[in-house]
Each structure stands twice: as structure tokens, then as C-alpha cells.
Write a protein that binds this DNA or RNA. Structure first.
Lengths: 321, 321
DNA sequence: GTGCAAATTTGACTTTTGTCGAGAGCCGTG
DNA sequence: CACGGCTCTCGACAAAAGTCAAATTTGCAC
């Protein structure tokens, strides 16, 4: 990337202000520009990730509850957003925490898989900017053409933009009308390569969807409410990257799943750090399934959900003994 | 580390302010404290590394000159502080840059070797705070009892403090009066372990000293000006972690070196990232020696020094062809 | 060269933040 | 239980940073 003169100025201003600790007016006189310009440059510096301001998420993992959840479910790390203790809007709280955790987990040169959903998009939307080098963000599942603001490709691109990373989109629909077509499309070199590349990721970011009429799969028209209900009776327990999973966290054997273009669960499991973020309390069963299926090593949830998880784990232990 | 209630408050304030982007007065009303307290908590958050503000050092490596130096001397990365373009005090500029580079190179769980000198202490002094986990800072050489403000152990401890890391000091003098004593001391388990641990470091931070009467070795009384002059005529070209090196970057064969308790050069070379910082222009020859001896993979210097290095490299190439 | 649109820069104003001394609360000691 | 020393907190003021519309410069097509 060539260094444009404007960028040079932004960098100089940021350097003098943040690294040397000069005041804005001092920076202004150093660079022979007005202080107002300095203020503007500094904003740009923050927005481009030249300057990074990050808050430690330590305290959210240090939580006793977080430790217990880790132990009970064998997870690598758990962060718990203390509900209603902080903000009026609790779901934002989880997203903000998730974004920080995400940025803490990303390393230079990483390959990152990103799925789709309201949760993921919310995270992308509030995530602060960073200047990671050689980071690639890959889309984990096909696109949904629906006029939704948080389409899979948008989630991917927005996160890539925030990280100053390369975004690798998936130019295929999430779900096709026949199994044959899906099979042929998966065999296409472009698609095949993309799918194969998923297992090479270092970090995945996704949420889990519920199997009900509120699901995005229904809202975007991929499935009708009736079909969804049918799948549920067949054992559908959650939605991961556009695919239906059962209670064990395995792909449900159904026509819909065979028509989907998305990351194989085996590929997802091959990713070292699988960060799952769950905002809604209604996603308790889906989350349990995802954990059961080993689809999550790092977890960000709210205090209430954590409570339910622990309660469940305790009950299971008692029954076992 | 148990979480003290005060720390909890600091963390909450920092979280609301930096992660959620609330204003100080909003944070204050959320936490039911005065805005003045919030301001104070935020300062503490910055000072303890709960909040991290870092500026990308990208532009200093992107420099064409930096690339040329990298290529000419086979270094992994070079950062060049543009002299007098930025600040009144050019040496501060180098130290600020070095501190940023250092923080960029440190990773969680790292073991870091730190040597000693005015340069290193300056860096420690202006380095911003961070909250690295499981980081250990080890002292690379014995202590100098002299009443200097930048003793080896102080450099180590200060950096450890800033990083919230564990500091491992070296409880031995840098130089002893007889070779026998030095040898016995090196064989002591405590010392031996410390010396052995140096090769396990992931990152080293040091500068190189000049062989003249201004050297700290002279100022601290480890060597007399006359002795120093004598060493110079024996081929002394620089000082690394209290040891005298020759122009090839090898330990000079002399009594002084045999009386020193410090990291073996072989151990230093075993460290993956060796960050060398040179402020003074007078340290041209010492720097060349250090580079020749493979004691430096990452380099932070000023523009003037960079120019001299390139000039030298060019001349060497011409002579060779 | 000229004219026009877009981007950049600035001064003046408002809002937000930093600081400091005074006062309140706390704790061990005599 | 009164005392001094200590830390923590707050209100009020001063300093610094953010914002916006107007002015200026820049880039570009004609």
C-alpha cells in the first residue's frame, strides 16, 4: 500500500498526540496546521486503526461464573457480560464485549471465518477499527439474496473493512432449490477452494440461530414457517452458518441441509479458536447443541444465560451420580 | 490476582467510556459517582493497562530507507525515526518509537530479556502501560552497584511494572574482581538458572554501548578510562549487556569479559526477536559490530544513523564488485 | 485558462475533560 | 473515644477537545 500524503499527515499527528503525548494545539503548531484539522486527523486515525484503543476484557473472564461455565462445558474461555448492571440495553453490552474479545483474539496474519446473523452484524457494527496486517476474513456460508441489511457478505465485508483486512466473499446462494444443483455448485473450483479454505482459519466468529419462525432463515425466505416447524419435529435444535443442527450438534439429515452451500461442520471444528456469541436468552437449546457438537471453544454470553447453563450442568451432574 | 472492589470500579468506568463510548458524565451517573471520580478512574485505567492506546508504527517501517537497511544488513525489521522533522528533541523521538515497537512485538506469555543503559531506561520511562498476561521480564546482565538511576535491575523492574509482568532480577554484580570468583558465581545454581533461562526468551531489548570514556562502564566505575582505552586498542568495538565485543560482534578475549556475569552472546542469538535501539550517532561502529555479530534482528534508529548505515553498505558493495 | 464540484482547512463557538483544594469517611493507635 | 494520618470523593474552575458553517484550496473537464 502506497502511503498517500494525507495518510502521512494523519500518522504524524497521531504519533505526536498519542505516542508523544502532545496537546492538539502543540501538534497543530508542529505541523503548521490548525488545531481543528488536528482534531479531524485524529478522528481519522482512530477510524483507520492507526491508533488503537482497546479495553481489557480480563474482568469478564475472571468472573467466578465464567470459570464455572468453562469447567462445566470444557470450553477454553468464557466471557460473561453482567446483565443490567451496566447499561440500559443489555444486548449491546454483549455485542460490545464480543467485539473486544474478538479483537483480542485476532492476530496478525490470521485467517478469520465469519458467519452471519443479527448478532454478528451488530458486533461488526460496533467493533472499533484496527490495522491488522495480512488478515483475511472469509465468509463461512453462501449468501441470502434477501433485502436484509445483514447479509452474510455484508457481515464479512464490514468486519474486513474495520480490520483493514482482505475480505473473501462467497459468491453463491446460501440455499438452492435442488440437491443436485447444490452438489454441482460445491464442486465448482471457486466454491470448492473457498470451502476448503475454511478449515485453514485460525479464528471463527459466529452465533447460533434458533429453530423457530423468528429465525433469519424464515425471515429471509429460505424456509417457510411450516418447513421450520417440520424440521424441529425431525430434531432440529439450532442453526449454525445457515445449516440446521440437531441436539448433538451434528448436521441434521434433511433435504434443506443438502441444498445449502456452507462450511462443513468438520471444517469449523478444525478452526483453532471458535468464538460463539449469543445475545438472546431464547437461544439456550441451540447453544447447548452447538457446545455439544464442539462448535465453540470461546463463548461470550450474558449473565442470565450463564446462569441457565450452570443450572443445566448441575442438573446433569446430579442425574449422573 | 483477586479483584479488589476499586479495580472493579475502574474497569467498569473504562468499559463504559472506552468500549461503549459513553461520556464521562454518563458514566458517572451510571455508576453513581461524580464525574471527577470517573476522570480519575479513567486515568488509573490507562496507567494500569486496563485500557491500551497504541499507535501503529507501520509508517516508520514502510519508509523506503528502512527497507533498504533491512535488505543491506539482512535484518527482519527496521524502524527509522525521521530526525528533526517531528520534535525538538530527537533522542526522545527514537525512544518513543522504540517503546511502541517494543509493545508491538511483545505477546502474551512471552519471556523478555532486558539489558541496561541510558537508552533502555529512557524507553522504560516513557513506555505506556499494558496488561500483558504471564509475561516475564528477565535481566540480561549482572548489576552495577553504582549510584546510577538506570541500573540493570531498575531497567528490568520498571519495564516489568509497566507491563504488569513478573520481573526476574539478577542478584549478582556485573563485574567481579577476579576471574575465579566470576567463574564460581556463574556456577551457582541461582545464577546458572538465570543465565540458562536467557536463551529461552522470545524477545530481547537492548542497545549497544560505545567504547570510550563516556561509556557507562567507565562512569559506573567498572572500568577506568585508561582500561577502556586499552581495550579499544585490543580491538574492542562495542558493549552489549555489559560485555565488550569486537568488530565481528564476538566477545573480546580479555580479562574484563572473563570477570563479567552476563548473558552469553550465544544465548542472546538464540532469542527469536532481538530488538536493538540506538539513539546516539556516535554509536555507529558499535552498531556495525553488533549487526555483524548477529545480535540484532529488529532495529530502531534515527534517520541520520540510517543514512550512515546505507552509505557504509553501498561502499562495501562497491568495493566487493 | 476557466469554471465548477468536491474535498480540505479554518476560526469561532460549544461541549467535554482534567485538575486541584476542600471536605468526608475510614482505620489503627494512644 | 478522640486523634492524626490516610485515602477517597466531590464541586468548581481552567484547559482541552469536538463541531460546524464558511472560506479556501484542489482536481478536473472543457
Amino acid at each position: 500500500m502506497a502511503i498517500r500524503p494525507a495518510e502521512q499527515l494523519i500518522h504524524k499527528a497521531a504519533w505526536l498526540y498519542y505516542a508523544h503525548g502532545l496537546r492538539q494545539d502543540e501538534v497543530a503548531s508542529q505541523l503548521n496546521i490548525s488545531r481543528a484539522s488536528v482534531a479531524m486527523y485524529l478522528r481519522k486515525a482512530r477510524e483507520t486503526g492507526i491508533v488503537n484503543i482497546s479495553t481489557s476484557t480480563q474482568l469478564f473472564t475472571d468472573d467466578v461464573m465464567a470459570r464455572k461455565v468453562e469447567d462445566a462445558f470444557g470450553l477454553d474461555a468464557v466471557w460473561i457480560a453482567p446483565e443490567n448492571a451496566y447499561l440500559a440495553d443489555p444486548s449491546t453490552d454483549i455485542a460490545v464485549l464480543a467485539a473486544s474479545v474478538f479483537l483480542e483474539l485476532v492476530k496478525k496474519g490470521d485467517r478469520i471465518g465469519v458467519a452471519w446473523g443479527r448478532t454478528v452484524y451488530t458486533i461488526a457494527d460496533i467493533m472499533s477499527f484496527a490495522d491488522l496486517q495480512d488478515v483475511t476474513v472469509v465468509q463461512l456460508c453462501g449468501n441470502l439474496g434477501a433485502p436484509y441489511s445483514y447479509r452474510p457478505d455484508q457481515c464479512t465485508m464490514e468486519i474486513a473493512r474495520r480490520l483493514n483486512a482482505k475480505g473473501l466473499n462467497f459468491y453463491a446462494p446460501l440455499v438452492l432449490s435442488t440437491e443436485e444443483l447444490a452438489k454441482s455448485l460445491r464442486a465448482e473450483p471457486v466454491i470448492r477452494d473457498q470451502l476448503a479454505g475454511i478449515a485453514e482459519c485460525d479464528l471463527a466468529l459466529y452465533s447460533v440461530g434458533a429453530v423457530d419462525a423468528d429465525s433469519h432463515l424464515v425471515k429471509c425466505g429460505a424456509l417457510s414457517p411450516a418447513e421450520m416447524e417440520g424440521l424441529r419435529s425431525q430434531g432440529a435444535a439450532g442453526v449454525i452458518a445457515g445449516q440446521i443442527i440437531d441436539a448433538r450438534g451434528e448436521v441434521l439429515d434433511c433435504s434443506y441441509n443438502r441444498r445449502v452451500i456452507s462450511a462443513e461442520l468438520a471444517s469449523l471444528r478444525a478452526i483453532g479458536k471458535r468464538l460463539m456469541v449469543v445475545q438472546e436468552d431464547t437461544k439456550f437449546e441451540p447453544l447447548l447443541s452447538a457446545i455439544a457438537g464442539g462448535l465453540c471453544t470461546h463463548l461470550v454470553i450474558g449473565a442470565h444465560m450463564a446462569g441457565r447453563l450452570l443450572q443445566y450442568a448441575e442438573a446433569a451432574t446430579k442425574k449422573a451420580s
